[in-house]
Design a protein around this nucleic acid. Structure first.
Length: 720
DNA sequence: AGCACGCCGACT
DNA sequence: GTCGGCGTGCTC
């Protein structure tokens, strides 16, 4: 009899699989989920490899866990992710395995209900349980205990006494089967053509990645639903990835209208037994369509035929706890491995995706018109060099006229300024002292409402001083430049009788408050909304017909090579908020540089122009072309920070051929959440070199290795 | 992830 | 003197 050794990958931050002896009579396959001893405890792992050999003094595999086998494709995917993100293999596995709690999968849930008979000994706790169970409803043990405000032990005691009886709970169906031919899809000709193109792509031997572009309201969802329907007809599975916040009832209802039932959903709110059963049903192929957040990408699909990444430009797809990845890019990779068609849907596609279209790596399907005939807002630049604006004011006469006009018609105005607080710089009139952050030397931003000076870089907060900390002069501090709070002040002076609200992440009351304010705006409770990038997405404001961008140039001058791209996307989203209702919208964009490619492209509505121009500018400036840029985020504990930084700089000073270090993109060392952090930008000729370089760099930097986290940010498509 | 080991501050 | 904080290293 040949004996075997199993190399078991454990879902911990370990980069190698550990070897265990396979006991005689245990039939293991690669991908099986097993239990193994590790140090003093038992853990769950996955058989990553099997080989014959003597177990010797290796520990033995304890047993096989009743969980779906991880397919070779899935293992390949996880290996790739670990390699690409420079994360330990075990961490990559953890993303796929922690989705289901193997221990709990064994537990059979039982419900309890009142059986009648009173316990021999009555206690106050038991009394409470009996009262809570009086209605005769079958409840889980834990639920009943919780309802009665006692521990589960009391419930157990009452079961022993015969006061409560146990009932095996029926399993609710985890998800109903979507019917691809249920709803009649009333598609326009344009939509129909797009849908057919997606459907045709799914039948290809090597299904492509397709960028599905269409403005809000153009019916992108209906179009990709047709591709989903085709996957279902083909007997394969479809995954619709979306940012967690986008998984709304509205979306589920639209799905139900097309497919007769709601899709299975996978997100952080799906927990416990439901999650386990969904996991199993996805692995068995029973569940055909999953709509899910980022983590749904790591489910063990039996036969995935289509991945849709909705709102592909969303930054929420970036994940950075433990393993740093961009779900959109990983979806592309998974699609490649699974031989699935990938559809990236967006109204404002990311620059990477556009460049991939330009280079012929992705296909492009466009839906030009707004469904139902709604128009894109008309966008105009306001050249600040030609406007006369009083000192301490920021709204141009041109913009003011438009605001007045809009308000006069009873419509809403959005004023966008991507700057929190009252003023971005504070200085002393007497001695010209600039208030800077003690940690990162960024300017401190005055928050008048909070009476504080805040560092937007690291979060440092200090109380606004009465007297200048440098020269002691009283009341000598002058705010320089505008923030949203200051704009609110100006608006209140010019339009004193209008209802105005400021939306920024500083708003007291958190998400809950934000939601109510957004709803109030949609209902017309305010005339003027002043907001930071918080207002760029989400929520429709049907009454809003004018968007004023107060300073479109913010962000265009920072050292970050992605600044232009980010600004373009943000402005495109913000200006797109005008005219979502019945009436057409307009946007006025105040700028000092109307000829800047970002502004010009925005105003002309010609995104391609920006991408072409930007690509050219990057070439001239020696910046990396899109998709070949990596950023390393290294964070180290305070004690190690200086050394880690010095070592990193030393290593980075002599990169291998084909790798260029562009320098730190953030402040050299910034204290963020208790850790020192710095970011390096690296460009390469070939990404494969980059991976090798980064691994080498990590390996040669032992002080950093222990407590550094590395994030890389490159486009995977370019080296698949 | 756990768990042990080891090094520094504040106390029964 | 020790208790215990967490930073660090190891687990086939």
């Amino acid at each position: 009899m040949t004996s075997h050794i199993a190399d078991v990958l454990i879902p911990l931050a370990l980069d190698t699989a550990y070897s265990y002896a396979v006991p005689d009579g245990l039939d293991l396959k690669e991908g099986d989920v097993v239990q193994v001893p590790l140090a003093s405890r038992e853990v769950v792992g996955v058989v990553w490899g099997l080989r014959s050999g003597q177990g010797g003094n290796l520990k033995k595999v304890t047993g096989v866990v009743d969980a779906p086998n991880l397919s070779a494709k899935m293992r390949k995917f996880l290996d790739w992710i670990a390699w690409y993100t420079l994360a330990p293999k075990g961490s990559a596995l953890a993303m796929g395995l922690k989705l289901v709690d193997a221990e709990r999968a064994e537990v059979v849930r039982v419900g309890v209900r009142l059986a009648g008979q009173l316990p021999k000994r009555m206690t106050p706790a038991r009394q409470k349980v009996i009262e809570a169970a009086q209605d005769g409803v079958v409840r889980l043990k834990s639920e009943l205990a919780h309802a009665a405000g006692v521990s589960a032990g009391v419930v157990d005691g009452l079961i022993d006494e015969g006061t409560l009886e146990t009932v095996t709970l029926l399993q609710e169906p985890v998800a109903e089967a979507p019917n691809p031919d249920s709803g009649s899809a009333a598609l326009s000709d344009g939509q129909q053509a797009a849908a057919l193109e997606l459907i045709a792509s799914m039948a290809e031997e090597h299904p492509p990645v397709t960028l599905l572009e269409g403005v809000t309201g153009s019916g992108k969802t209906e179009v990709y639903f047709e591709a989903v329907a085709q996957a279902v007809r083909d007997g394969r599975q479809a995954l619709i990835l979306m940012p967690e916040i986008a998984l709304t009832t509205q979306f589920l209802d639209r799905f139900a209208a097309r497919f007769g039932v709601k899709p299975a959903t996978w997100h952080s709110g799906v927990t416990g037994r439901k999650r386990e059963r969904l996991y199993a049903a996805i692995a068995s192929g029973e569940v055909r369509v999953v709509a899910g957040a980022r983590s749904a990408l790591f489910l063990p699909y039996a036969d995935l035929g289509l991945i849709v990444v909705d709102e592909e430009h969303e930054t929420a797809y970036k994940q950075d706890d433990g393993v740093h990845y961009h779900a959109r890019d990983m979806a592309v990779v998974r699609g490649r491995i699974e031989n699935a068609s990938v559809v990236l849907a967006s109204a404002t596609p990311s620059i990477e995706s556009r460049v991939n279209v330009q280079r012929g790596r992705y296909r492009h399907v466009q839906l030009p018109e707004r469904f139902g005939g709604r128009q894109m807002p008309q966008i105009r630049a306001v050249d600040l060099r030609r406007e006369t604006i009083p000192k301490g004011r920021w709204l141009s006469p041109t913009l003011n006229l438009s605001i007045e006009d809009t308000l006069g018609r009873g419509e809403q105005v959005l004023l966008f300024l991507n700057r929190r607080g009252y003023a971005p710089l504070t200085l002393c009139r007497a001695c010209a002292h600039r208030y800077e952050c003690p940690n990162c030397s960024a300017w401190l931003v005055e928050h008048r409402f909070r009476r504080s000076l805040v560092c937007h870089h690291c979060g440092h907060v200090e109380r606004t001083p009465q007297a200048c900390i440098s020269c002691g002069s009283i009341d000598s501090l002058v705010p320089c430049g505008p923030g949203v709070e200051r704009i609110a002040e100006e608006v209140a002076e010019i339009f004193p009788d209008k209802r105005c609200v400021v939306l920024s992440s500083d708003m007291l009351g958190g998400t809950e408050r934000l939601r109510t304010e957004l709803a109030a705006i949609a209902d017309g409770a305010f005339d003027i909304v002043i907001g930071t990038q918080l207002v760029a997405k989400g929520h429709n404001f049907p009454l809003m017909t004018l968007v004023g961008v107060l300073d479109a140039d913010i962000g265009l001058t920072s050292g970050d090579p992605r600044a232009a791209e980010r600004t373009f996307q943000m402005l495109q989203q913000v200006t797109g908020r005008a005219g979502r209702g019945e009436k057409p919208g307009r946007a006025l964009v105040q700028t000092w540089q109307p000829d800047h490619p970002v502004i010009a492209a925005l105003v002309s509505g010609d995104a391609e122009r920006f991408y072409e121009e930007e690509t050219r500018v990057r070439e001239i400036a020696g910046l990396p072309p899109f998709g070949r840029l990596a950023s390393l985020i290294v964070s180290a504990a305070e004690r190690e920070a200086a050394e880690a930084h010095a070592r990193a700089m030393a290593l980075v000073a002599q990169p291998p051929a084909g790798v260029t270090v562009l320098g730190p993109a953030e402040a050299p060392l910034a204290l963020i959440r208790g850790r020192y952090r710095f970011r390096l930008l690296v460009k390469t000729e070939r990404e494969v070199d980059l991976q090798a370089y980064l691994r080498d760099w990590l390996g040669r930097c032992p002080k950093v290795r222990g407590n550094a986290r590395v994030a890389i940010d490159v486009d995977p498509q370019s080296f698949l």
